[in-house]
Design a protein around this nucleic acid. Structure first.
Lengths: 250, 250
DNA sequence: GCAGTTCTGTGCGTTAGCGCACACAACGAA
DNA sequence: TTCGTTGTGTGCGCTAACGCACAGAACTGC
């Protein structure tokens, strides 16, 4: 590996859109408790049934919420990037979930201890509203994943997955093998190979040993099923933020 | 129709487990605002994108959260009965969702105006915690629906659907045509006919023109995929309530 | 340069589920 | 009773995706 992909410019906490949307006093109060951590590729941010100790606010990278079945088969339920946080069950009250969270694209995050988070959440201000709205966006994503799994082809789902990933990455390159994509989508690796082959054929993407480059995003958006747009529209609607410390300078 | 299925004994608000779990003062404060309403079969409790005006706490009946695609195909995302409420986006902050809520089994509910609900939610007490824990249970159900749609056969999904319905009904009879079940599962009607035929063959159920009777629940639980147990276990874990007005008399 | 590993391509046969077309049985109202 | 409606059974060709088995290409370490 020539360079660790996480070694991009380290971002301040406002690299996370939720933190950036906090009002200055809320942000200031949180700041001393925010601890920067790396999100190395493949790391399990949390495991099913395990009591969580922190929530993670990514500034770069992608974290997949993944369910792994008894027989080892898996399916991705949702993804999170710098627009959200990982560990909603801490403020939802459950403390754990039956799914895992796996770093799918390396990056960085700021984490917050469970007790601090709960204390702030109980104040009922900005932070609470932001976290709940984000949670609703996440719910929409899960619901649409269920629909997509039911009705759409592997190719359509691959398009959706690429676009969701792209939305959470700075460039148009995705480092991920077809094998891993297949795990996420819960399909065969060969199925991904075929679908990706067709997309490359059509000039929408180019890939080469674990690195996918999106060449023609508009065309990709033409091929994808409606699920992507539903999730995107609802996310945009729910997560349009006011003037936090991240955008307080007009 | 010989008798409207909703015409069972009308229940007090404590017929809903969330309301029943409230502390007496919280419950008393809510009581004057709770308005009893019927949930007639097929009624849309809410429509996609429409601003909701009330949340509904069912005491009997089942409400399906359903997504309908552009081409008319549909898929159920989750179900709610007297263990929960319909309209979480009101306190999550989104005011609406891209999915519908349809009464799948007629019953009754108590509804609460949006402003009252938000006011109570903002107090940050029992009600908030109950609603959020319920929401997490719902999230688990959605996630597992996504997984199930990905990996399991129609027959397994039918078993899951039957058990989830049974858990929310007083008797072992489900009034629902195979056509409608197919809509919920997002599969062909014929697929349901075949799967149900096999289950009847094996003596697990008996059905006759829109009425399904579960004869051997243990055997159903043997045939179902792990998804049912995951959802059930997590619901039980998250929704084990303390001593509200509903169980204050030992 | 060579050996081992990782990633992708391809070619089978198999199967679950689809779409369609109809037959028929049960029920409800006239 | 008769007729329309509603719900279920069945057959048949078709397709997407599966499981498996390899082959070859690309990169890694020695």
């Amino acid at each position: 590996m020539p360079a660790t992909p996480a070694a991009t410019t380290p971002q301040p906490p406002t690299g996370n859109l939720l933190l950036a949307a906090l009002s200055p006093p809320d942000y200031e109060r949180l700041l001393p408790h925010l601890e920067p951590v790396a999100l190395p590729l493949g790391w399990a941010v949390y495991e099913p049934g395990r009591r969580m100790t922190h929530v993670y606010f990514p500034t770069e990278g992608i974290v997949s919420l993944l369910y792994v079945m008894e027989n080892g088969a898996s399916a991705e339920i949702a993804v999170t990037g710098n627009e959200g946080l990982v560990g909603i069950s801490l403020f939802m009250g459950g403390e754990s979930t039956p799914s895992r969270a796996i770093v799918q694209s390396a990056g960085h995050a700021y984490r917050l201890g469970a007790d601090i988070l709960r204390r702030e959440f109980e104040r009922g201000g900005d932070l609470q509203h932001l976290l709940l709205r984000y949670t609703q966006a996440l719910i929409t994503q899960m619901a649409q994943t269920a629909v997509c799994n039911r009705h759409h082809t592997v190719e359509q789902q691959l398009c959706r997955w690429l676009l969701l990933s792209l939305d959470r990455l700075p460039a148009n390159k995705i480092r991920m093998t077809q094998e891993l994509i297949a795990n996420m989508l819960g399909v065969r690796r060969e199925g991904v190979t075929e679908a990706a082959g067709r997309l490359q054929e059509a000039g929408l993407i180019h890939y080469h040993r674990g690195e996918i480059t999106v060449l023609d995003r508009p065309k990709l958006e033409q091929r994808v099923c409606e699920c992507y747009a539903v999730v995107k529209r609802e996310s945009d609607r729910l997560l349009q933020y006011g003037n936090g410390p991240g955008n307080a300078h007009p």
